[in-house]
Design a protein around this nucleic acid. Structure first.
Lengths: 336, 336
DNA sequence: CTGAAAGCGCTTACAG
DNA sequence: CTGAAAGCGCTTACAG
């Protein structure tokens, strides 16, 4: 079943009395063709509604000029990274397409195949879950991982220092005078969630505050899971005076749960998030959180990918710093 | 400059002592080949890391199995629509890719070319700004527009009844007893913004409330623009008792501006949004707003597109209803 | 400046 | 069940 939504260069050539080579040149190397011919062909192309078949061009050229950004889910977080990627792509003449795996490794593989198969020139992967591509092609896939830390080391990555961010968040609470500081962690299978947990623990250790495992709750990065985790925390015999949440959504959920039982933020409990989504700034009270340079991460990742594709510079990796953004949900602990 | 990240079927065929036809069959019509051969070829493919070149396959088949969702900007709103599209795409074996035009009509054209050029089989366009594709191909592009109303009528669209939604919102405020009801409208160049404004006016007219053009402010769909519009409203000689905002972000901005001057929502002023983003539910106080069936819109759009591509059913259009979601930002007007 | 021809890597009737 | 060959629609040396 062939579709013919557009005429081919051959039919256009015939209609205009020129060769297909001329059609092709007019479109790709116009300087090589006589001005009068060029004009005539251009008009013909316009009139007949001709568009070159990119599948054929890609096949011939062996490259596509597009890159794929693969995300594990369609979320706000990735949108900013995407914008960074797009910016860098623009600067280098690449088109960017986004593919969503919805957490399905099979689907991820499908998307990788697009690249392995010359439907795209490279991939930026926004998850740490590397797929099982056939080993033979593993290291030939132009790939850079962004934001999530990568377990295996021989792939280029633009990482964010999640541990440092978590430490900053926790230290901020300690500096305010808190001693019973809880943590609502992210899901087990997300690598950065573990790293953030580790940063929280490190900050406590450095401040010589004894760890209390009852104060660590697991969430799923969703608003509701944050609320639930907070409810567990409130049932503890000694309720914490502050909580550091592994992302902003859970922080919002936690604040909701606090309000539901009549507790005020930050007067009764301080709350810190992670990510610095637009939500954090807009929420009332505005959320104290850790800013992740998402745009930069995307931008840098694309820059590295461009170098890999064009082989101008060797593959490399790089780590970006986070930044504590103090807003209205943190204060000294209530005096008792 | 050819890339060779993957071996070709030819080289694999040679290595295994079979023909390229067999390689192809093993991958696409395995039932047609002898079991022993099949096993052997499969192992060889695995070992050599072979992946078929999709550009070549697409060229040969004249179809790609992927569709493009084109958005005017990377925003939360579109993510839900995307999820709907993905759901329907899954059911029909299509892969979906997202392309962002960032408001640039040229870029939109580039993306359309991908389709016109067999790099994708169809497009779902999430904006009403139709491009100027060469007229000859105009009606051959498998295209469906979703969410935004389309000015020209000969294209398939899944529209949302923005006017009805705006009417519902305004009627809700009227029913609560409000008479001075302001509107913070969206930008001029967004079609649905105009439709929402019209719905607001219609509701006032139906209720025989005299229109007061001072009560209509333009915003840009952003939080800040909502805050600014509210500041203008507060400078009026007779301040309104309620405001209907053309989207949730502006409603949040308006509430922020109200709070900044010590006014309470909904005690001093009622606020209604539009869209029903996750933000609306999570915000405190939770926002009364108009729900847009985004997932459905995406789902239905993809269904129609599938029919257009496979030519099983004629192109068609369809309008989805909105729904008023009453939460915590609306109440009767303050008594004076 | 222009054309004829090879070839990119597949898929698929057509033979055998 | 398998292979040889044509052909999808381009681009690009190679001639002229």
């Amino acid at each position: 079943m062939k579709k013919d939504i557009t005429p081919s260069s051959k039919s256009v050539a015939r209609a205009l009395g020129v060769s297909v080579a001329t059609i092709s040149r007019v479109l790709t190397r116009p300087d090589l063709v006589n001005e009068k011919t060029r004009e005539r062909v251009l008009r013909g192309i316009e009139r007949l509604g001709y568009r070159p078949n990119l599948a054929a061009r890609d096949l011939r050229r062996g490259q596509t000029g597009t890159i794929l950004v693969v995300v594990p889910q369609a979320g706000v977080f990735f949108l900013d990274v995407l914008r960074g990627v797009e910016q860098a792509a623009d600067e280098h003449g690449f088109t960017v397409l986004l593919a969503n795996t919805r957490g399905d490794l099979n689907r991820q593989r499908t998307h990788f195949d697009h690249v392995m198969s010359h439907r795209a020139d490279g991939v930026i992967l926004l998850t740490g879950q590397l797929p099982t591509v056939p080993t033979a092609s593993q290291n030939r896939l132009p790939l850079v991982v962004a934001v999530e830390p990568v377990p295996s080391s021989n792939v280029s990555a633009v990482t964010v220092d999640h541990a440092e961010g978590a430490e900053q968040a926790t230290q901020h609470l300690i500096a305010l005078g808190h001693r019973r500081i809880a943590h609502i962690a992210g899901p087990d299978n997300v690598f950065s969630a573990g790293t953030r947990l580790a940063g929280y623990r490190k900050a406590l250790r450095t401040a010589r505050i004894a760890a209390d495992e009852c104060l660590v709750q697991r969430g799923l990065f969703s608003v509701e899971s944050g609320a639930k985790a907070m409810q567990s925390l409130l049932r503890q015999r000694r309720v914490p005076t502050a909580v550091f949440c592994a992302n902003d959504q859970m922080a919002i959920g936690a604040i909701g749960a606090l309000r539901a039982v009549g507790l005020r933020v930050p007067a009764d409990m301080s709350v810190v998030g992670f990510d610095d989504l637009e939500l954090a700034e807009v929420y009332a009270p505005a959320l104290t959180t850790i800013h992740i340079p998402r745009f930069d991460a995307g931008y840098q990742a694309m820059m590295i990918l461009v170098d890999i594709i064009s082989r101008t510079r060797p593959a490399r990796s790089l780590t970006l710093s986070t930044r504590l953004v103090i807003r209205a949900t943190t204060a000294p602990p209530p005096n008792r």
